[in-house]
């Protein structure tokens, strides 16, 4: 069980016109693994993440997630996406719904839960991210850190098998980064499979099982956090880490 490969990416390429953003990415992620993707901006790390739930259409290559080939035209992409949570840099909470409704929306719309069940789930998840007192507030009334915690709760409401995080703390004021990372860390400890694009080296070092360094559309280096962050081999990795650490 521990070793089951849940995400299998082979020879993934992505072009925007003539601009090659991803050049031949291959990687396996095992169930329960926490993988952090680091790298300079423009390295393709967000694009890579977004290919995993087909927010970006890949140009070529195979992506198999939970035994489903997501590029197979027969795959119901909506059903597939329901199994994968995603957290965005800019939260993307629904401003016309209050916090509780934000969390309840997907499970109720997709008929996974009744309204009552969804409400219970929402309150349980809000308690978990420490925001049960904000259930009736609107996103505009929350701080950035609170918004991101709600966004995590919203993704968890669908009971996903995998969570994707796209620079979840990059848009936050420094004092709010900790509260979001804490929630993510707890999630990791509970055994959630996570792929995290991040600039938080502390988080990558402490929480992840594996770190991937990307640059120029390639995976330049990958390994345990100790290998990649503390003892990098590649020059590009060393340069990047010198700049951010």
């Amino acid at each position: 069980m521990e070793d089951r490969v849940i995400i299998k990416v082979e020879n993934l390429k992505k072009n925007y016109g003539k601009n090659e953003v991803l050049k031949n990415i291959s990687i396996d992620v095992k169930e329960g693994e926490v993988v952090c993707v680091i790298g300079p901006s423009g390295s393709g790390k967000s694009t890579f993440l977004r290919c995993l739930n087909k927010l970006e259409e890949s140009t070529s290559g195979t992506i198999i997630v939970d035994d489903i080939d997501i590029n197979d035209p027969k795959t119901n992409i909506d059903m597939f996406r329901a199994e994968i949570g995603m957290v965005f840099q800019h939260f993307n909470l629904f401003p016309h719904k209050n916090v509780k409704e934000n969390i309840m929306l997907a499970p109720v719309t997709l008929k996974r839960m009744t309204k009552e069940e969804a409400e219970k789930t929402a309150m349980r998840l809000l308690k978990r991210v420490g925001l049960e007192d904000k259930a009736d507030q609107y996103p505009s009334q929350l701080s950035g850190g609170q918004k991101q915690r709600v966004a995590i709760a919203r993704a968890l409401a669908m009971n996903p098998k995998i969570m994707l995080f796209d620079e979840p703390t990059s848009a936050l004021d420094p004092e709010m980064v900790g509260e979001v990372l804490k929630v993510m860390k707890e999630l990791a400890q509970e055994g959630m499979t996570m792929v995290v694009v991040t600039h938080e080296m502390g988080f990558a070092r402490e929480v992840s099982d594996r770190v991937i360094f990307m640059d120029g559309g390639y995976i330049v280096e990958e390994g345990t956090p100790d290998e990649v962050i503390n003892h990098p081999h590649e020059e590009r990795t060393i340069n990047f880490l010198n700049q951010v650490l």
Partner: peptide
């Protein structure tokens, strides 16, 4: 905001659900 559509689609909502609810 395009992020609204992405958030809704990433939760598994269909195109029409995304349009009508979000």
């Amino acid at each position: 905001d395009k992020g609204q559509i992405e958030a809704a689609r990433s939760l598994g909502l269909s195109y029409f659900q995304t349009m009508s609810k979000i």
